[in-house]
Simulated assay, not measured.
Amino acid sequence: MTDQPDSAPRAPEGVDTDKPSAARIYDWYLGGTQNWAVDREFGRRVERQWSLVKPGAKQNREFMNRVVRAALQAGVRQFVDLGSGVPTAGNVHEIIEAELDDEDSATVVYVDYEPVAVAHATLILEEAAATDWAGIVHSDMRKPRTVLRDEVTRELIDFDRPVCLMMMAVLHFVGPDDDPEGMVKAYRDALAPGSWLAISQMSEGDGSGPALEGLRWLVEQYRKTSNPMWLRDRAEIEPLFGGWPLLEPGITHLPDWRPERELNAVEAEARPFAWCGVAEKPPA
């Protein structure tokens, strides 16, 4: 991506653009423009040390897109995207618009605690004339009760019907002191049978060599930001599904969940460093 410092919109009131933001850095990884110089510089430093960061981000976004399409094909019409970040191409509402015809409909709730993410999501939904079926909740996903009781959530989501709840590359920002298992359980308990829970999580996986050392360096750098990072292995991720039956192919690396294309050499190198899976809530 060519840096264009003037392309980033004016920061909303109260947004700190002097400190790197995980949401804006991720936008840069995906080739977006909703980021500032401090985010781009942080991203470049990460990429120099761990060249797989952009391929990894792309694999995560493609996994999310496949989950949304699969949920729609299964008849799910409600989506909650926790820690949705700064809007970038391939958002949930864009996938829905591409997949459904005019006679079908769905609803989407994005959730993020960063004011900049909320500001840009609001603008994008307004420009897309989607505010009657998609909305943004300005809240910390680590507070399930607040998210679930928010006015936007209650307006757009009927928890008596199936929901696709997505935690895409956000749980690595939930530390042990945040009680990740309790947090995820609170969301699971709110969902109706037939709901889906989709999780992707960065991990050391079965990586090795310089790539693994680069990832460990990345984690240390994030520990210096407002969004410290924790990696989890497969054994730590599986309990988060609460015993719900996993949809095929189970817990896999990102590009292995119902793949739609072949990987190039660099993408294959990034493959080991994240896990993902989707589970469906069984009947009571």
Rank of each mutant, 00 (worst) to 15 (best):
M1N: 13
V152W: 08
V152T: 12
F241T: 07
R77I: 14
P249I: 02
D179L: 02
D18C: 08
P5I: 04
R258W: 01
E236A: 04
T122D: 13
P255N: 07
I124Q: 06
D233I: 00
S7N: 03
V174S: 06
P228I: 01
A98S: 13
L171T: 03
E280M: 08
V92A: 11
A129G: 13
P87G: 02
W50V: 00
D233W: 03
A129K: 06
L156W: 09
L212F: 06
K185L: 07
P87H: 06
E181M: 11
D39I: 05
F241V: 10
A89V: 00
E262S: 13
L254Q: 01
P249E: 00
G83M: 00
G209M: 08
A198N: 13
R40P: 09
G209H: 05
K54D: 14
D39H: 06
W50Y: 00
A192R: 03
M168Y: 01
A274R: 04
G207R: 04
A198V: 05
R261D: 02
T107W: 02
A119Q: 15
L82V: 01
V67M: 14
F42N: 07
S105D: 05
R149M: 11
N227I: 11
G83P: 03
V15N: 12
A71F: 10
E94W: 14
V116H: 15
G75K: 06
G242I: 01
F42L: 07
E126Y: 12
Q73A: 09
D179G: 00
D81G: 04
A265G: 07
W230T: 11
A130P: 01
D150V: 04
L215N: 13
R154H: 08
D206G: 00
K54L: 12
P245Y: 05
